[in-house]
Design a protein around this nucleic acid. Structure first.
Length: 580
RNA sequence: GCGCCUGUAGCUCAGUAGGAUAGAGCGUCGGACUUCGAAUCCGCAGGUCGCAGGUUCGAUUCCUGCCAGGCGCACCA
């Protein structure tokens, strides 16, 4: 295409700068909405026409003439035509489509790799270990995990990471909450003690807090006898604080890992914030080391004022600069975040993806400022891509399920997964763009209806597997397929199906480029629909000898479609069942 | 007050770096199982793309201003 545009440009002596600018933008290929417009389409001539000051259809005509002289174009397209206001529409030739099917079945990778693979770190969930994961975390988990799989699939080098906020007051409060729960269980609850430890705060009050306290009391050996004795008697020593905090956090983190594992999500690395605060042999913590390094080499982004240390986040459109080290000498959460991201850059990533809850959007500007500084210092481009996951509201039979975080009465991810299953939960989370709020209706998610397309897609796959099993049962032996075997596929429904299948890798690449996963979910639903339609209208298995070539071609087509469905579902972390 | 996200069919949402007659599912209504899985298929109806301007040959898409909903604006974590 690029070549054709160049040829056309030479021939018509179009201004070179206009041409190069257009080519730099890239020749955009779209999938036309209607099949009558072909399989691929480009509005290129229309944008070119604007700059050239010529009618779009004329420009398209010149490009088309040049295209016809290119042999590859001749082979891959059966028809190229100008339509509408100046689109150039391409219809894929049956030879191309047959080759495509052969490749699908040959065991070759379905998806070509990107030319310039990047080293990408995807950080997601990163929930504080102060309680179990709730449905909002679940959406982030499904998104981050599938995004990572997607990025990997298109050829990037991807690793995933969970940042554990295990430092700071929240952790102490967790320890205190469990301690107080234990006091309550042993019949020693006292408002004075609570006020002394937590002040006005309520602390953490979910049932899981009492569970942990009960475990400490009832399971011999989980806690040092001296510490337990102190706790029972109401001596809240530093050691009690440390032991309770540590134990509670470990328990909760174990629970989180279990919930994630049950949800099909695992991480390459869990990164503890605590390690950033810990003093090394040289007496400096990681935070201190990074901050002083950036103070020297960060291009003036860090400065002192009013007895505190600041980061110049206004450089990146933040409202005001942010404090790193408070005048009392302690570090803010933001300081740890800087050290953490600096560490990621030092580990060689060139793209950092941060998946956050939408309520953190106010932090974007400051983190982008940090990324800019880190990138400049590293002397290479390092991108920070922040994906904000919008709210999930839970419904049951159309009415909101109340979720009061304060009282710890939120619906956990585990409860949802137990109720509706991993597949339906993950698929539902991924049917919408992550930046629009999601309504998750528990009763609908359980239904096996089109309100819940996961079953629709899985059913298409199961249908295909069952068909193939049926074929095998009838003694149909399936060998290796060659492009020519697909010549009998002449039905419009077959062509529509293949045309859609051929979009698979394009959908993945485009989704990966925009760091989205819901286009894949939509695509799979459409592909399943195309297969169901085809299957309903055309008989595949036949015992007539004369039908054998058609049958074999259809079996090949079905196998290929099944493979694409399975590949897509696996990226979503959803099973592709053989039967259901 | 400032900032971010959202506003498209009765409902839930898509809509590809401005492009062809704005799409899908659910829901409503009406059809299709003696043959490979009816968890399926086929059809009908349903729209001032929040409102008003602007840029453009062309705007759901870009810009400005309103309106509505959600979220966020700490030397908290």
């Amino acid at each position: 295409m690029t070549r054709a545009v160049r040829m056309a440009g030479d021939r018509e002596s179009w201004p070179g700068d206009v041409l190069e600018r257009a080519l730099l933008r890239g020749v955009r290929l779209e999938w036309p909405k209607k099949e009558e417009f072909g399989d691929l389409s480009t509005p290129l001539a229309m944008s070119l026409a604007k700059e050239l000051g010529k009618p779009p259809r004329t420009v398209a005509g010149v490009v088309l003439a040049a295209l016809r002289e290119i042999p590859e174009a001749e082979n891959t397209f059966s028809k190229i035509e100008i339509a509408g206001p100046g689109y150039i529409n391409f219809s894929l030739s049956s030879a191309y489509l047959s080759d495509f099917l052969e490749r699908c079945l040959s065991g070759e990778a379905l998806v070509p790799k990107v030319k310039a693979p990047r080293r990408i770190n995807v950080e997601f969930v990163s929930a504080n270990p102060t309680g179990p994961l709730h449905v909002g975390h679940g959406r982030g988990a499904a998104f981050g995990d599938s995004l990572a799989r997607l990025l990997r699939e298109v050829g990037h080098e991807v690793s995933t990471e969970y940042y554990i906020n295990d430092a700071g007051n929240q952790m102490n409060m967790l320890g205190k909450s469990v301690y107080l729960a234990l006091r309550k269980i042993t019949g020693n609850e006292s408002p004075e003690e609570k006020l002394r430890l937590l002040g006005e705060s309520d602390g953490y009050r979910g049932a899981y807090i009492a569970d942990i306290a009960r475990e400490i009391l009832e399971t011999p050996g989980v806690m040092d006898a001296d510490v337990l004795a102190d706790a029972r008697d109401g001596r809240f020593t530093d050691r009690v604080q440390a032991t309770f905090t540590d134990f509670s956090q470990r328990r909760i983190m174990e629970g989180i890992r279990e919930d994630l594992a049950g949800f099909g999500v695992s991480f390459d690395r869990y990164f503890s914030e605590k390690t950033l605060h810990k003093k090394a042999d040289d007496g400096l913590s990681s935070i201190e080391r990074w901050l002083s390094l950036l103070e020297r080499e960060g291009g003036g982004s860090i400065y002192s004022s009013d007895g505190a240390l600041w980061f110049k986040t206004t450089a990146m459109a933040d409202d005001k600069d942010r404090v790193l080290k408070k005048s009392d000498g302690s570090y803010t959460y933001f300081a740890a975040d800087i050290a953490y991201h600096a560490d990621k850059v030092a580990r060689g990533y060139d793209t950092m993806v941060d998946v956050w809850g939408a309520d953190h959007h106010g932090y974007q500007a400051r983190m982008q400022a940090v990324a800019k500084t880190l990138s400049d210092r590293a002397g290479r481009p390092v991108d920070l891509k922040i994906c904000l996951i919008q709210l999930v509201s839970l419904l049951r039979d159309g009415t909101a399920v109340s979720m009061s975080t304060r009282a710890g009465e939120f619906v956990t991810l585990r409860e949802v997964v137990d109720e509706v299953g991993v597949d339906a939960t993950r698929f539902s989370y991924l049917t919408r763009s992550h930046e629009s709020a999601l309504e998750f209706d528990l009763s609908k998610a359980k239904e096996r209806s089109m309100d819940n397309p996961v079953y629709y897609v899985q059913y298409a796959h199961a249908r295909i597997r069952s068909l193939l099993a049926q074929a095998a049962g009838r003694g149909v032996s399936v060998g290796t397929f060659h492009a020519k075997d697909f010549a009998p596929l002449t039905e419009p429904a077959e062509r529509s199906l293949i045309r859609l299948m051929a979009q698979f890798s394009g959908v993945l690449h485009r989704a990966a480029e925009s760091f989205e996963v819901h286009p894949l979910t939509d695509y799979l639903t459409a592909l399943a629909g195309a297969y169901h339609h085809y299957y309903f209208h055309h008989r595949i298995l036949s015992s007539e000898e004369a039908d054998r070539p058609v049958m074999m071609a259809r079996i090949g087509l079905s196998t290929a479609a099944g493979r694409i469905l399975a590949a897509g579902l696996s990226l979503l972390g959803v099973r592709a069942p053989d039967s259901m």
